[in-house]
Each structure stands twice: as C-alpha cells, then as structure tokens.
Amino acid sequence: MDPAAVRETLRAFIAKTLIRDAAYPLGDAEPIITAGLIDSFSLAELAVFVERQWGVDIPDPELTVERMNTLDQIVARVLAG
C-alpha cells in the first residue's frame, strides 16, 4: 500500500461521506470525533470502508475514540494491516 494514497483516500472518504462536506480541509492531526465532526456510528462505517477498500480487518475492540480520533491514527492502523 502506498501510504500517501491511503492517506488521501481516507481524507476524501471522511470529508465527503462522514463529515458530509467534500470540501472540508481535514488536517492530519485534527481530532475528528472529540471535535464533533463525526459521531461514534461513523467508526463502524469507517471499519467497513477500510475492509472493502484494502481488505484490512480492524477488530471491533480497536474502534475506539482514543485510537481512531485523527487521520494520522487511522492511516497508521490501516498501514499496519
């Protein structure tokens, strides 16, 4: 997986589908959940997307606010496979 491509694919998915604003300039270290940009339901949606897109299965217990609150964290988890 190309880390830069993963990052941009996730950035676009989170902005368009989860934040519902494709033009949203999402920062790499910007808190997504604790800042109220998306709700906890979106974590489940993110897991389904990551699995379909890259075949990476993030186990349920890892879908937490502490572990998935920024693009940096999510990218790192996807790249870990």
């Binding site: 519902r20 300039p25 959940i33 604790t34 800042a35 109220g36």
Partner: peptide
C-alpha cells in the same frame, strides 16, 4: 468562519454529546 464552525461542533459534542452534521 472555520474557527466558529469548529467551535459550534465542539460545543455540541461536549455539551450535548451529539454531532452537528451541518
């Protein structure tokens, strides 16, 4: 404008526990 929008979203999640979608 972005700072105000971010502050509104932060206030919603922090004070009410819900996300303001728009």
């Amino acid at each position: 404008s972005r700072a105000i929008v971010a502050a509104v979203r932060q206030a919603f999640v922090g004070q009410v526990g819900v996300a303001a979608s728009y």
